[in-house]
């Protein structure tokens, strides 16, 4: 009976127990470090240093949270606010500017369009470290060093975001639709607002999410341009927890957990959309 049922499935479509085992293994490895942050930050050092170490959460978590939030010279709550402000500003700006410029590059005829697109793609191949030193000199001259604007302004819109939106608009919106609207007398801004924007909403949201996550996790640039602890973002603040009391794993891991928890909560709501964002980008790119 069972054999008969299996032969119905084409050979190249079969799944086996081994497949599920591998997927379970990778799931475990993906989730374990998060669980481990919580375990270490909620146990005493003695529990963690014994062999084998304790693998279950202990009772100390709130105590460690308190220690992280009140650590001397570390403004963890402020860093959380800073990171959030920077992430939101960059995400909103990138979505707006990328959608408008992406629309122009995909659908409007103007001189220099093709050349500009090639130029943008070419610059995307350049590694970002190339510009780090001059960018710092420029930001310094603009008196932005040690302000959150030093993080926000250079990231208001990126070549990647514009190129991505261009690909999406090019693929999702038929020219005939735009032409029909324009024959009916709709102006270009009107077409953008009432035809283009509604149809790219999902993609624009994904772009915003990626921009937000990138800003949240950025470390190299913030550590260069931010100098005083009350201006730090979470990533920079986390590195402050290290030398504070010698090697205190619980404190560091507590900080790491606090800095990651907001992203995990966000991920519960947007994980599926991120997955389709990554996969959509792949087919077109």
């Amino acid at each position: 009976m069972r054999l008969k049922k299996r032969t119905k499935v084409p050979r190249w479509q079969r799944t086996s127990f081994l497949n599920y085992l591998m997927l379970s293994l990778i799931t475990f490895l993906s989730v374990f470090p998060f669980y481990w942050m919580f375990v270490v930050s909620s146990n005493t050092d003695a529990e963690i240093s014994k062999s084998p170490p304790s693998l279950v959460p202990g009772p100390r978590f709130m105590e460690v949270v308190h220690k992280v939030l009140t650590a001397e010279g570390v403004y963890f709550t402020q860093a959380l606010i800073n990171t959030f402000l920077v992430g939101i500003s960059i995400a909103i700006a990138q979505v707006i500017f990328s959608a408008i410029a992406g629309f122009a590059f995909a659908k409007l005829d103007f001189r220099g369009r093709k050349f500009s697109i090639l130029f943008i793609i070419a610059t995307m191949m350049l590694p970002s470290q190339l510009g780090v030193v001059p960018l710092f000199i420029m930001v310094n001259k603009l008196h932005l060093v040690n302000t959150l604007n030093a993080l926000i302004v250079p990231a208001l819109v990126t070549a990647f975001g514009v190129f991505w939106m261009r690909q999406i608009i090019d693929a999702q919106i038929p020219n005939e639709l735009l032409e029909a609207a324009s024959i009916d007398g709709a102006s270009v801004p009107r077409v953008f607002w009432s035809i283009v924007l509604p149809s790219i909403r999902a993609s624009a949201f994904v772009l915003g999410l990626f921009a937000f996550l990138a800003a949240w996790n950025d470390y190299l640039w913030p550590t260069i341009v931010l100098q005083s602890p009350e201006k730090f973002t979470l990533q920079v603040a986390l590195t402050q927890l290290k030398p504070l009391y010698g090697l205190d794993y619980a404190l560091q891991m507590g900080g790491a957990f606090l800095a990651t928890a907001p992203l995990l909560i966000l991920f519960i709501f947007v994980g599926k959309r991120l997955v389709s964002g990554v996969m959509d980008g792949a087919v077109k790119g």
């Binding site: 500017f97 122009a104 103007f110 500009s116 420029m138 819109v157």
Partner: peptide, 25 residues
């Protein structure tokens, strides 16, 4: 479509891109 709006549409991007993307290179 009408290209008259092309330049104003890419202007914000291009200014930021030239200052913070191309100039540092």
């Amino acid at each position: 479509m009408n290209g008259r709006w092309g330049y104003p549409a890419i202007a914000p991007f291009f200014v930021i891109f030239l200052i913070f993307g191309v100039a540092p290179v």
